[in-house]
Design a protein around this nucleic acid. Structure first.
Lengths: 219, 219
DNA sequence: GTCTATAGATGGATAGAC
DNA sequence: GTCTATCCATCTATAGAC
């Protein structure tokens, strides 16, 4: 079953799906680059090369479009993380060590953020949703924590000696590390370091993040 | 020299200063709580109990008001951090250990964020500026890194054995920990943990952050 | 289904009376 | 300096022609 929004449909059929996909992609890109409130429906339809009414015809409203992108991308990301966590469990008899758990959380967005990756922009969209999302998104972010619970539980199983409170706080710190990987922050770090930091080297960055976070958990 | 924007002037003189202060405070509060783009000039003047034209009269424009709040609060915060870093240096013969450097960075915003502290809202404003700021703010954030340079240099002096690249990346991770301390993220963590995390205990949170980050730097 | 034209609402800024 | 009334730009959403 192919996904009409991540793969081109045959050009000869259904201009409808093509238009919807063009709107989706243009919106995701513009929102990720410029912020939700700074992008108008006119900007999106112009970028997509479709007519102004397309957003409302295909998605109902600007907000509904935003929310659809948000739901799709977060669910894809969380599914990939859950898959990696499951694999880590399979490798370690159901009880993976801290580093493998963290890797399942870090790796998917980092891989997507690789310079040549299609979903580079999706990661930036998701990070932005966290601070700029509307009430509906914030409600989801706040209440839909089942995905995080799996990671918290895995961490508590890996470190049964730690008070649960400590595990939750350290998980909070780890989340902060991930959410700080925005284009603007990479730019600033690049500027500060005189250009020696290269965020494009995804494998090296993953190792650095794992080293730092694993050490933070080891205390 | 008292600061007219953080302390009430005598009630009998200069309604002008009082109005300007009311606008400043209302704007900071509303921006911090609801986001820059979600607060209108009308919202601000209504909250402040002044007339609609006050923002433009006292500050020139909505954007200029935003920028003035941003400049004032970030310079206050950075000055306090620099002071603590200087003190840490004085205590350790000019070469403070990693933990003391990190404490100089962590402590000021955490103290301000204490439940009963006046500047609780200022910290949230500053964090928001990082992701929602306009082009002018982003320009400042990107280019005005002299403050961060002091911390980077102190860390490199404390850990001369580490490659500079490693120090910059670890500083980046530390910044992420700080920037993640938004109300919404605390709420989410509280929800996830079943209510056992208490961000109001500032001293305990500071210790947790220091333990985690210091360990991350020790590898 | 696509597209144009426009309704309807909101917000930043300012002129001008007091 | 303060305040009201208003201008003007911009945006979302939709009606209606094709």
């Amino acid at each position: 079953m192919t996904d009409p929004l991540t793969q081109d449909p045959p050009e000869t059929e259904e201009a409808q799906a093509a238009t919807k996909q063009a709107v989706f992609n243009a919106a995701e890109r513009l929102f990720a680059l410029h912020g939700f409130q700074n992008v108008s429906v006119r900007d999106i339809t112009a970028e997509a090369g479709v007519n102004l009414a397309s957003v409302n015809y295909h998605f109902g409203s600007k907000d509904a479009l935003l929310f659809e992108i948000f739901r799709r991308r977060t669910s894809e990301l969380n599914r990939e993380r859950a898959r990696m966590l499951h694999e880590a469990g399979a490798r370690h008899g159901g009880k993976p060590p801290v580093r493998d758990i963290l890797e399942a959380y870090f790796a998917p967005p980092l891989r997507w953020g690789s310079p040549d990756h299609d979903r580079r922009i999706s990661v930036q969209f998701i990070i932005r949703a966290r601070s700029e999302g509307n009430a509906e998104m914030r409600e989801v972010l706040r209440n839909d924590v089942s995905h995080l619970e799996r990671f918290a539980n895995a961490l508590m199983a890996a470190r049964p000696d730690l008070p649960k409170e400590d595990v939750y706080w350290r998980l909070h710190f780890v989340l902060g590390m991930v959410h700080n990987n925005r284009f603007a922050e990479f730019d600033r770090l690049h500027h500060l370091s005189g250009g020696i930091t290269r965020e494009g080297d995804v494998d090296a960055l993953l190792k650095r993040m794992l080293d730092f976070a694993e050490a933070g958990f080891s205390a």
